Each structure stands twice: as C-alpha cells, then as structure tokens.
Amino acid sequence: MRIAFYAPFKPLGHKNPSGDLAIARGLVRYLKEQGHTIEIQSILRARWIYFKPWLWFLLLLHFIRCLKNLTSNPPDLWLTYHTYYKAPDLLGPWICKFLKIKYVIFQGIYSTKRRRKLRTIFGFYLNRAALVRADHIFINKMSDFKNLKRIISKERLTYVKPGIKPDEFKKDEVSGKKLRKQWGVKTCPIILTAAMFRDDVKTKGLSWLIKCCAQLIKLKVKFHLVIAGSGEMENELKAIAQDYLPDHHTFVGKIAPGQMFEFYSSGDVFAFPGIRESLGMVYLEAQSCSLPSVAFKNGGIPEVIDDQKTGFLVPMYDYRGFSEILKCLLTDDTLLKQMGENAASHVRKHHDIDLNYGRFEQILCQMSA
C-alpha cells in the first residue's frame, strides 16, 4: 500500500523531541515495517499559519507540487498525522478531493471552545473542515474520541491505545550503574525527570517539581533529582534548582532517543507533573523500564499510568500529596519493586505498538482495497 503522509503540526524531521513527534515517527515506522510505502508530501509546518500570510504562497506551492506529483500515480490513500486548531491540515482534504482518494487522519482533535475566541476561531473552522472531510479518523486519547463523536459518525472513528516498542525500553542494570557512577550518585535513590526546557508548561512543570522535591529535604528523605533536557529556559531552571535543591540535583543535558532506556535504567522513580499533558509518551517509556511514575491527574496521563498500580496520579499542584508519594516510594523498597514490575508488565500488555496498531493497519487496508 502506498500512503501519502503529512504532519502539519511538526514534520518528522523536526529537531526538538516531543511526545507528538514520537507518536508520528512510531506510526510511520510501524507502517513501513508492515511493508507499506510512506511518501512524505510536505514538510510545511502549519502552526498558526492563518496568522502568517508569508506562508500562504508557500502553502499554495506545496499544494500544486503535491497535486502534480500525485495526479499521474495516485497513492492508495492520504494519511495526516495530528490536525487541530493551531495546525489544521490545509493540504490533505483538497488533494484527496481532486484525486478522489481516501483521506485518513490519525489524532484529530476537536474542541468547540476554540470557536469562542477571536485568536482561535479561524483555526477551529479550518480544522473542523478537515475533520468532517475525513473518511476515517483514528484517535489515541479517549477525551478526543468523545469530542469527535459530536460531529463524526461512529463508523468513521476508531480509538487506538498509544504504544511504544517495549523491547527498546528495557531496564539495563549495567548502563544504569554506569550513569550513576558518572553522576557521582552511587547509592542515593534517584528521581528522574525529562522534558524540553521550553518557555511553557514544560518548564513550569519542571520548576514545580524542583520546588516540590525541596519538601523531601525537609522530610529528611535521601534522594537525588536527575533532570534530562535542554532549551531556552535551561539557565533559569538551573538557578531554581540551585536555590531549592543545592547538592541534590544534576542536569544531564539532552539525551538521544536511542539512549533514553539507559537514562531510565539509572533511576528509582520517574516524576514529571505533566501540566495539560496530551498523553505523555515519556511515562510509557519510563514504565517500560520498570520505573513507577508520578504525575498530575490531568489530560491524557490517566490513559498511560494505571493509578496506584504502575504509579500515582496526584491532584494538580498538590505539593504535599506529590512529595508524600515520592517519600513513600523512595523509602519502601517492596512497594518500589512491585510497582516497577507492574509498570513494565502494564506497558507490554496494553501499550505495545505492534499489538495496538494492528486494527489501525487492517482498516487502512480495507479502505484502500
């Protein structure tokens, strides 16, 4: 099957790692492994494009180029990954209409509150037009599935659990010990966290976590916080960590995706608040490496962390609750081990991409037949 592919929010080659990018790359990789041909149609990023007139001409050029390239040899279908009000798909619906081919969306998002604000109303209607035009939409978050049911018939909607390749995220004791030695933290329990240091909820979440961990010092809990990531807010985060966690933290910089399992293998607990986190693929990766995860109970996080079995979900901004749970995990070896085992088992049973995406591929094949 030949599939025309487009990711309007963030192209596959984007330099900054994120959960969205991990899902998109995993999706493409899975399809290729099943023997399908994926043809990237555009790398034009459509984020806030309706406010960027200098991109409108470029959009037209990309449209003409795609139409010209595909007219003589149309693909079996068009697959768009992630369209929503900030980055609506402005290519796929029209290309598919002209070529009379199936238009499919993976991770379409619909929220009526976006039509109530002047800043987002244009994106709302442009995105809605793409959604209602789709022949089928696959959703990996239940809240988005429920929202889409308001405008899309159930026959055109399919929920797919998010997944990773668990074999690529196994706990490696040797690598973990090597990193602990490198960081000078041989015996002290380690709390791991990771995120891009962007000037948004990622940095707010990290800042909150650092301050929350300061409560552990008051509770006389032994720990060391290891923070992975990079970005424009790095100096600010380092200053906050120095103020609140002197001698209790280490920044390790940006870690390559292929080495993240080594990072997870060095720790005892993974903690990241995840303010308005859409899903949080990082939690799946950490749990797959036998790490219990602690996060806020919001967004799509409850769909990847089984509360009180593979980790703990805490009410938003509950300093006391968050720090008490971290204390409990770090001082109870039996609980820590059991939850780590539960976490690894949970990911392999419910979030294995090769199992979860089977139905997705089956529907695509039926549509292209």
Rank of each mutant, 00 (worst) to 15 (best):
P17C: 03
P302K: 07
G300M: 05
E277A: 03
A195T: 10
R114Q: 12
L364T: 03
K349W: 08
F261H: 14
G258W: 05
I151R: 09
L58Y: 13
N16A: 11
I164H: 10
L192S: 06
S42D: 13
K222V: 00
G184E: 10
L291W: 14
D172T: 04
A295M: 04
D20W: 11
L59I: 02
K349P: 01
M196Q: 13
I301P: 09
N16K: 06
C213W: 07
F360S: 01
K204S: 09
N140K: 01
K337P: 04
G300Y: 10
C213L: 06
L91D: 04
R29E: 06
F169E: 03
S153L: 06
E155K: 11
G231W: 13
Y125F: 14
E285T: 01
I40G: 12
L179W: 15
T83R: 07
I363L: 08
S345R: 15
P315T: 01
V314E: 09
I227V: 11
I137F: 12
S368V: 14
K15N: 12
D352Y: 11
R114S: 02
T71H: 15
M1K: 11
F322I: 00
E33W: 14
S42P: 13
K220A: 05
K177P: 03
Q287P: 07
M142R: 15
Y357D: 02
Q215S: 06
I227E: 09
M339P: 00
R198M: 02
S18P: 07
K220R: 15
P315V: 00
V294H: 14
F197D: 02
L219A: 14
A194Y: 09
L291P: 03
L219Q: 15
T331L: 09
I301G: 07
C365T: 15
F57H: 10
I152R: 12
A228L: 07
A239R: 14
E236A: 11
H248F: 11
D200T: 01
L157A: 08
M142F: 07
G300A: 05
M196V: 00
L90N: 09
L27C: 04
V185F: 02
C188Q: 13
K113L: 00
Y85G: 00
K86H: 09
E168N: 12
K117S: 06
V201N: 15
F197W: 08
R114M: 08
K297P: 00
R359G: 12
T334Y: 15
H136Q: 10
D268C: 05
S293K: 03
L99N: 09
W183A: 02
R276Y: 13
L279I: 13
D333G: 01
F223G: 02
G358C: 04
A87P: 10
Y159W: 12
L291N: 06
L336F: 05
P75D: 08
N298V: 06
A134F: 05
L355N: 14
A46D: 12
K149W: 10
W48A: 07
L355G: 01
C365R: 11
K97Y: 09
D318Y: 09
P75L: 07
W78D: 03
M260K: 15
R276A: 06
P88L: 04
Y84N: 04
A134C: 05
